[in-house]
Simulated assay, not measured.
Amino acid sequence: MQSFDVVIAGGGMVGLALACSLQGMGLRIAVLEHQEPDASALGECPELRVSAINAASERLLQHIGVWDDILARRASAYQGMEVWDRDSFGKIAFRADEYGFSHLGHIIENKVIQQALWQRASQLPDITLMAPVTLKDVAWGENEAFVTLEDGRMLTARLMVGADGAQSWLRQHADIPLTFWDYGHSALVATIRTEKPHDSVARQVFHGDGILAFLPFSDPHLSSIVWSLPPDEAQRLAGLGNDDFNKALAMAFDLRLGVCEVESHRQTFPLVGRYARSFAAQRLVLVGDAAHTVHPLAGQGVNLGFMDAAELASELKRLQRQGKDIGQYLYLRRYERRRKHGAAVMLAGMQGFRDLFEGNNPAKKLLRDIGLTLADNLPGVKPTLVRQAMGLNDLPEWLS
């Protein structure tokens, strides 16, 4: 039987970032993952699943020593944002250099981030990577958790961390209730080549039944799209021939970047909001999608998860320094309070924003157009929005 201080279920982006953040604290850390990340070289066409990594997450990734590796693999900085309401006057736009920043964030393939983090974790002496493995059982003792794997191996942990995604086995096994709601939309993702250059600007347009975002890659004519639509319409668009899809996409985007050409297959997945009733329990804590999932409206999902990892690492460091039991719920409640608040604010904000921009009700349309125009023109509003978009209003103290 192997003994660890922290066992992290899930070797995705958030679980690995947490493991790397705990290096050097004198803790023995294990990361359990179903499948070792694909180490094959990246293809010419970017992966479909990407994240908009904000400045706060960039600081965390710099701190744990993977940022340069991520940039060397493939990452695309964006310097501006534009949001508008189709067939109306509401719009807002801003650029990083107007507020003293070189960029607002980076569009990075999830595979790139996970590869870099896995490689980094494999080099750190405090971390044991275990893959492929599957959890079979966890029994909660007074002073430690007893972990049984499908292959028969047994581990003990002073603290279990659920970083095993939206369908978290660990969360379900611990009987932590989950509040969830169907957004009534599916996301359609694809890689698109555009006639006009994107100028490193992330763009998002709201129309009656959907939200369409173009996220710029380093190739000036290549973008990743995330198109939030009613499920039937998402499936219909996914099944169109390339020519018909390209025309529908360009029209939905107001021809802002001219003619569009799809360069990848199209993938759809349902959009569901989730919020665990508890982010912590005795000898257990949840991070990332195991604790919360949000609408991809502002690309904040993985950024929320990275801030969970940063906050938890900070809290465990404090407890370790004070000689306290890192698995005691009494002490983990501080992490829970802080991160539940951050996630709740984000979930409520995204839901309210989505509700406001859904449908073509004339009164609602006028309200959102006036709101966008005021935000674009009132002094002091855009600097706050820029800092929010960059994640700088939700930084743990040690990353400030």
Rank of each mutant, 00 (worst) to 15 (best):
Q79T: 09
K365S: 12
V201T: 11
A343H: 13
D87T: 09
S186C: 07
L188A: 10
L178K: 09
A238N: 12
L257A: 07
G141I: 05
W227R: 01
Q119Y: 08
T293G: 12
D69E: 03
R28W: 00
R95N: 10
G352E: 15
Q300I: 12
V50D: 01
A145K: 03
H63R: 14
D209P: 09
V14C: 09
I127S: 11
P37D: 15
R256W: 03
A213G: 04
D164K: 07
R86I: 01
D87F: 06
A252F: 02
D369L: 13
V205W: 00
L378M: 13
E82H: 11
F101W: 14
P362T: 05
A248T: 12
S218C: 15
Q114L: 11
R321W: 14
K324Y: 10
G288E: 04
L330C: 14
D394Q: 03
Y335E: 04
V287P: 06
T128D: 03
Q322N: 09
L319M: 06
G371T: 02
R354K: 03
D209H: 09
R49D: 12
V189W: 01
S186M: 02
H34P: 14
L42C: 12
N110L: 03
D68Q: 04
S3F: 06
S57K: 04
R334T: 14
A163N: 01
G299P: 07
E233I: 12
T268N: 00
T194C: 05
A313N: 02
R256N: 02
A248F: 04
L399M: 15
P296I: 08
A41F: 15
G327W: 00
Y331K: 04
A55I: 11
G80R: 03
L222G: 15
S186A: 09
R334C: 12
L129K: 04
R236K: 04
Q35F: 08
D151W: 02
E263D: 15
C260R: 01
V161Y: 03
A19P: 13
L332K: 15
L222N: 08
P270L: 12
D85V: 04
G26R: 02
M307K: 05
D87L: 12
G10Y: 00
D69P: 05
L48W: 02
V147A: 06
G273Y: 04
L212R: 14
L129S: 10
P46N: 04
H106G: 15
L319R: 02
A310V: 15
R274L: 14
R74F: 15
R318Y: 08
V302R: 01
G299F: 07
A190V: 01
L22H: 01
F253W: 09
T373C: 12
E36V: 14
A19Y: 15
A280I: 07
D209Q: 11
P231L: 06
N143I: 10
L104C: 11
L312D: 13
